[in-house]
Amino acid sequence: MILEGFYEVSNTALAGDDAITTLKVNKDHDIYRGHFPGRPVTPGVVLMQLFKEDAERIFDKKLQLVRADNVKFTAVFDPTQDNELILESNLTETGEFIKLRGVAKNKNGIVLKISSLFKAC
């Protein structure tokens, strides 16, 4: 975990190539002191990192991002409003590569859409 204490995994459900992981984000984490004081916003790169860490947990492998396509941030994720974040992923493993298509959402809707490629390292 790159940001110690940033989140806890509440649940992960796997069905074939699909995964749904529910995270509880720590609204009091230090990252929000600088991003932004009084109006916490989860940085986009952190949201992307959550997908990587989820895939690493699922496959029990360290991964390196090779490519990120179609990354679309569609809303702000403010953990003081709702600290539950759901990662819905389709994960396809081919040799040393893992292709991920994912959506991060909370009770208000979609926060991030992403397609990415990882390599096992």
Score class of each variant (00 low, 15 high):
G38T: 03
K99A: 15
I98A: 11
V66C: 12
R67C: 08
I86T: 15
A120V: 15
D17S: 14
K52Y: 04
R101N: 14
G95M: 03
I31G: 09
H35G: 02
G34V: 08
D60I: 02
T94R: 15
T12P: 06
E8I: 10
L3N: 06
N108G: 12
V103Y: 00
V25D: 01
A13M: 07
D78P: 10
K105C: 09
E88D: 06
F51Q: 07
L14V: 13
G38Q: 05
R101C: 03
D54G: 08
R67I: 01
T22H: 00
D28V: 04
P43W: 02
P40R: 10
I58F: 13
T94S: 12
R57E: 12
L65S: 05
L100P: 00
G44W: 03
P43C: 11
Q49V: 06
F73K: 08
V76A: 07
L112E: 05
F97M: 13
G34C: 11
T92I: 14
T94F: 08
T12N: 04
D30L: 15
L3G: 09
R101G: 11
I98K: 05
L87W: 01
E8N: 13
G34D: 12
K105D: 04
A120Q: 12
D17L: 07
A55R: 01
L112Y: 00
A19C: 10
F36M: 12
C121N: 13
V103T: 15
I110M: 08
L100T: 06
K61M: 05
Y7E: 04
I20F: 03
A68L: 11
D17T: 13
A13R: 11
T21F: 08
P79I: 02
F73R: 07
G109S: 06
N70T: 02
P43K: 02
P37E: 04
G34I: 03
K24P: 08
K72N: 10
V71Y: 03
D17R: 00
K113W: 03
Q64F: 08
F97I: 14
G34L: 05
L117T: 05
L91S: 03
A68V: 14
